[in-house]
């Protein structure tokens, strides 16, 4: 790249400096990232009760298929993924498209307002939502007052409504964040394309589906994969939406908010610790993330 006519000793010193600069990070990553990931893989083939630990091969992985709690957590997580992610990304796309229209007034103001939820901590907004959605809380109060409902909705007391609450909360927190991605990409699309489409008689809805979405495809893929990783790791929200937080017996009514990551936590720190099996579940999460990402690549990434 540079310095073609430098001496050998200079190259050597350059190389030494290269290692010096990266060494701190490499040591820390080696100890606190690389080693745990590899060790976790080994752990997933062992079974432990307290301090006794023995090698069991793949039997932990076989156990996954018979573990009703694991299957419930997997089902819940996939429901959140399949319903929440598309709603959120679609809404973000619509908001970005509207705010990209230069004839709309107060665009900067709306952009800031929609992004604002993304600055809250996951715990803070979850607890806000838990209070707003309590049985005699704010949301039910408003809905009763405008006569949309006759009796209060048991938001956090019923398995179905608890899931709905979590989906609403997640959508509130992350839509504006995704919108910003789309908005910055839309600003790079030349207006001539839209002008030409307008002349050809395409209305705004057609423009959205035939121009905006195809052009943003790579970015939609990127946000979809980021959201997949996020959903598979859902922990803070379900834990704090349930009645007693970390100490609660079930995560949401009837474990309706039990996600895979919460299950790993429970296996380690709530029940009698079985780190081996917990590591197996965490590797199952890694595999599912990889699988879902590959599927999304195949479905959306055909044209690169």
């Amino acid at each position: 790249m540079m310095g073609e006519n430098t001496s050998g000793s200079f190259i050597k010193s350059k190389n030494r400096h290269g290692w010096l600069f990266v060494s701190l990070a490499l040591i820390l990553l080696g100890v606190f990232l690389f080693y745990p990931i590899v060790y976790s893989l080994y752990l997933s083939t062992t079974s432990s009760r307290g301090i006794v630990q023995k090698f069991v091969g793949f039997s932990n992985y076989a156990r996954l298929f018979q573990d009703s709690m694991f299957i419930l957590a997997l089902k819940n997580t996939l429901i959140f993924f399949l319903i929440q992610v598309p709603i959120m990304l679609f809404l973000a796309l619509i908001l970005a498209t509207i705010l990209n229209d230069k004839t709309i007034k107060f665009r900067g103001f709306f952009r800031t307002a929609f992004f604002l939820p993304a600055v809250t901590s996951l715990i803070a907004y979850t607890i806000l939502f838990k209070m707003m959605f309590s049985l005699d809380g704010f949301i039910n109060g408003v809905l009763l007052n405008v006569h949309i409902i006759k009796s209060p909705i048991p938001w956090l007391l019923d398995p179905f409504w608890a899931k709905v609450t979590l989906i609403i909360a997640l959508t509130w927190r992350w839509t504006g964040y995704n919108m910003i991605f789309y908005l910055s990409a839309l600003q790079n699309i030349s207006e001539e394309i839209y002008e030409a489409a307008k002349i050809d008689g395409a209305d705004k809805v057609k423009q959205f589906f035939y121009i905006t979405i195809p052009l943003l495809k790579p970015l939609i893929l990127f946000t979809a994969i980021m959201s997949t990783i996020g959903t598979l790791q859902l922990f803070d929200e379900p834990m704090n939406l349930s009645q007693g937080g970390v100490t609660s017996a079930t995560i949401g009514p009837g474990n309706s908010l039990l996600t895979l990551s919460v299950y790993v936590y429970n296996l380690c720190f709530k029940y009698m610790p079985n780190f081996g099996y917990a590591a197996t579940v965490s590797y199952a999460i890694v595999l599912i993330v990889a699988l879902l990402s590959i599927i999304q690549f195949k479905v959306m990434g055909d044209k690169k």
Partner: peptide, 20 residues
């Protein structure tokens, strides 16, 4: 190699990290 590890969810290294 380190970039490859960016995709690994934290939960997958949590247990050994805790023991460490």
């Amino acid at each position: 190699i380190i970039i490859l590890f960016m995709m690994v969810p934290f939960i997958a290294l949590m247990i050994p990290l805790f023991r460490l």
